[in-house]
Design a protein around this nucleic acid. Sequence first.
RNA 1: GUGGAUGUGGCGAAGUGGUUAACGCACCGGAUUGUGGCUCCGGCACUCGUGGGUUCAAGUCCCAUCAUUCACCCCA
Length: 426
Amino acid sequence: MAIQRPKGTQDIFPGIVEKWHYLEAHIRKVCSDFGYQEIRTPIFESTELFQRGVGDTTDIVNKEMYTFLDKGQRSITLRPEMTASVCRAYVENKLYSQPQPVKLYYMGPMFRYENTQAGRFRQFHQFGAEVLGGEDPLVDAEIIQVIWELYRRIGLRGVEVHINSVGCPVCRGEHRERLHSYLQDRVAELCQDCQSRFERNPMRILDCKNRDCQRLTVGAPTTLETLCDDCKEHFDKVQHYLRILEMPYKINPKMVRGLDYYQKTAFEVMAEGIGAQSAICGGGRYDGLVEEIGGPATPGIGFAMGMERILAVLEKQQAGWEDETDYKVVVAALGETAREKGFQLTMELRQANISAQMDLLGRGLKSQMKHADRVQARYAVIIGEEELAGNIAIIRDMKLGDQTETALESVKEYILDQINQSQREV
RNA sequence: GUGGAUGUGGCGAAGUGGUUAACGCACCGGAUUGUGGCUCCGGCACUCGUGGGUUCAAGUCCCAUCAUUCACCCCA
């Protein structure tokens, strides 16, 4: 049997790749408008980075990493997310000595060994942004605004922003105690996962999807109820700023994100109509992370969004992307000498930034014309023996169906004129 | 890791045990020996996912296996 692509990966080819270009272009523009600069980091890193950065209790580290030993017996992992990498790069390159905060964004493939389903892949793409060195709640509001503004520009509708505060090391202890005593008597009724969470990371029991667990946590203390003064003020201010920007959001006290490094603000964006995996973006504040991986104490916040999922929502809405008006030219030449002339002409057109193609298979005129139609060429330039003898070419407007003759050396000028004219009409 | 669904030519899709496995689209060629989009004609299946089994006979039944897909967990 022929070799096929690994499970959970995809080939993106013409017809679809244009949608990626569309999304990527908007992402770059929004980031640029907000003053974020692109960072590119390695696709693989030391396994230890993710173990420490993402957290040992997470599913990502426990069961989803692509980890292998390289020939030097180093444990290497294909990045499952990029926040840890960005923080590593920040520390390693001493970006903390540059003007703060450092505002970065990235796009690229991530890898997680999971079973696939709608909206879930083993190699998928994320766009994300991170702000390092800024602890003001205004930073939180700005970064959420980046997300919202992108969605506004690409016309994404039907999404909800959920926010929450999961507290900080100061107030987590109290929450943990109160949650423990609340659930103490009913631990046995929790699902298996939550029974182990009870000791390791009880907070996450709150957003367990198991029905029994949801029932048991109906009146359970949320992190919001136990926020320390600092966290509470921070959360209030984030909301205040979001309101100033007239950004709609919902407070979801039970949203506790799966990664260990989050504290204070956490947020998630949900979409409908793309299957069970409805989270299109997630993020939060991670003030202890940079220190955790060996850097100076540095506040940080960021998000990541799944580009496949964004495209899925756009597809669902049938929201398009602008058609690029591309004036393609196909040069149809017959006979060796004409083909040589045509080849030169094709090059000239391309040098003038006109998309031009020529038959490469030595086909007959009919086939070449048919091909010109198939590739939706606006103009066909026909050069045969007769034209060659008269040093002319036929220029056929494929859309209007009429054609004229012009001197061989003025073909380029003629087509440029035509293009200019029709652009003025539009 | 767990559960369900599916697996016929490039794509979509008939086929409910029995001659050379429909059809549509796409692709290639021809009908005007130099001109597209419509029409007509023709071309394009050495594994019906793979391997076993049942049967005189299997794409059609059974088993296994692989793949795809949806869902659970979790996440983007």
